[in-house]
């Protein structure tokens, strides 16, 4: 395999998070997710072939590939928005605060 061109000098990547570990870990996540989608796509192709041959039922149930990709991207990155899926105690988790009230029981 050829390597990408900027070799020679080692340049350090841009950092967006307070701890660059997060930047790097995000890279791992994105690479994994891409591999996951590539595999998923392969599986779907196989399923379609198998179903055409009458070996598995209902491959048509799979939406178009673009919709698949969009759905995975949505599922993967939704957590980045930090929005609750069910209402409840919000914000940074801590049990250090003891005073509970009727309106704020958490």
């Amino acid at each position: 395999m050829t390597s990408d061109k900027s070799d020679g000098e080692q340049r350090s990547e841009q950092v967006f998070f307070e701890d660059p570990a997060v930047d790097r870990l995000m890279g791992v996540v994105l690479a994994l997710a891409t591999e996951h989608y590539v595999l998923l796509d392969r599986v779907h192709v196989l399923e379609r072939r198998l179903s055409a041959a009458g070996l598995v039922p209902d491959a048509e149930a799979h939406a178009a590939e673009h919709a698949d990709a969009a759905a995975l991207a949505e599922a993967l990155f939704r957590p980045l928005l930090g929005v609750q899926q069910a209402r409840g105690a919000a914000g940074r988790f801590s049990l250090a605060r003891t005073a509970r009230t009727e309106e704020n029981p958490q």
């Binding site: 994105l30 989608y37 392969r42 969009a70 990155f77």
Partner: peptide
């Protein structure tokens, strides 16, 4: 695989 990966990256850009 190249097509799939590029499609996923584009979908992620969509998000």
């Amino acid at each position: 695989s190249f097509d799939s990966a590029q499609r996923f990256i584009l979908a992620a850009k969509g998000f």
